[in-house]
């Protein structure tokens, strides 16, 4: 029994780490512009698909293919901001959110046309020899996912709390007019926020694809799970989003193992609904109050 729980724990943390990266991407764009970017899941898919095709299609060494895929996704995220979001300047938050939904459908369509409907695999970064821990096992790739996520979460935390640039991004969300008036290039900050979110999405994609495989529509479920995680942790609280992701991954994995794997996805959304009913500001979010 306990060995099983340990096994579920490993799976849960791995999946949760992926959700955490997606949720962090949601939180960053939400923080910078109050917009929920529903194309966040497609950033994950694009990162993974680009990596698969750069590796198997052009014979590049794996690390090079991964780096290129992540770089391409960052460029994609920034272009999305520049040519779709920034163009709609003056549009309401809701209109902008609808643009992101449109973009997610568009990106899925592009991936379908470019790469087809197949489910695709990618080699593990450092072999598939399982590591035995008690009577549970862990793949090296699980460690890549956990470690990679840890490093990125710390880096994002450092960026927002200890660099002027990071604080300037936060300033844009607190008060855009005041941000303009102190000389912050608000457009550039938005570009940075989208680039950073695309980077986190792509990293999640390339790290987890060796374990979970990918396909043109893999972003839908990951996007929704990441969104649930961000809500669970408290929208707009980056570290809450990370905690929400890990928690959601653990809940899903335990439910799948102890109840039935058929309910795995349902559990995630039941959690989302419960949070929205009982604690809409999330576990770690501050109750929002408008000062007038």
């Amino acid at each position: 029994m306990w060995d099983q729980i340990l096994q579920f724990l490993f799976t849960g943390v791995t999946v949760g780490a992926t959700y955490a990266l997606v949720a962090l991407g949601f939180a960053i764009i939400y923080n910078a512009s109050d917009v929920v970017n529903f194309a966040q899941g497609e950033f994950v898919m694009m990162g993974a698909m680009c990596a698969v095709f750069l590796y198997s299609g052009s014979g590049l060494p794996l690390p090079v293919a991964l780096l290129l895929a992540v770089a391409l996704t960052i460029v994609l995220g920034m272009s999305f901001q520049r040519f779709a979001i920034a163009r709609a300047r003056g549009a309401s938050v809701v209109s902008t959110i609808i643009i992101t939904i449109g973009a997610s459908i568009f990106l899925r369509g592009v991936a379908l046309l470019l790469w087809g409907k197949d489910i695709l695999a990618m080699p593990h970064f450092s072999g598939e020899t399982p590591i035995q821990l008690g009577r549970a096992t862990l793949l090296p790739q699980n460690l890549w996912v956990m470690g990679g996520t840890g490093v990125m979460v710390l880096a994002v935390h450092y960026f927002f709390h200890h660099t002027t640039l990071g604080k300037a991004v936060i300033a844009c969300s607190c008060n855009r007019t005041a941000a303009h008036l102190v000389g912050i290039n608000v457009g550039l900050m938005m570009l940075i926020a989208y680039g950073l979110s695309a980077f986190l999405g792509a990293m999640a994609g390339v790290l987890v694809t060796p374990i979970t495989f990918t396909s043109y529509d893999a972003g839908v479920m990951l996007g929704l799970k990441g969104f649930s995680a961000a809500i669970l942790g408290g929208m707009g609280n980056p570290m809450g989003a990370v905690a929400g992701g890990l928690l959601l991954g653990l809940i899903e994995s335990m439910a799948a193992g102890l109840i039935s794997s058929g309910y795995k996805d349902a559990i995630g959304f039941v959690v989302l609904l419960l949070v929205l009913f009982l604690r809409p500001s999330g576990l770690f979010g501050k109750a929002s109050a408008e000062r007038v």
Binding site: T164, K167, I170, C174, N175, L181, V182
Partner: peptide, 15 residues
Amino acid sequence: QVFAPLSVDDNLRLG
């Protein structure tokens, strides 16, 4: 129109 959640020092630094 100060940046309410940021510290006094951060507000000045952003200035």
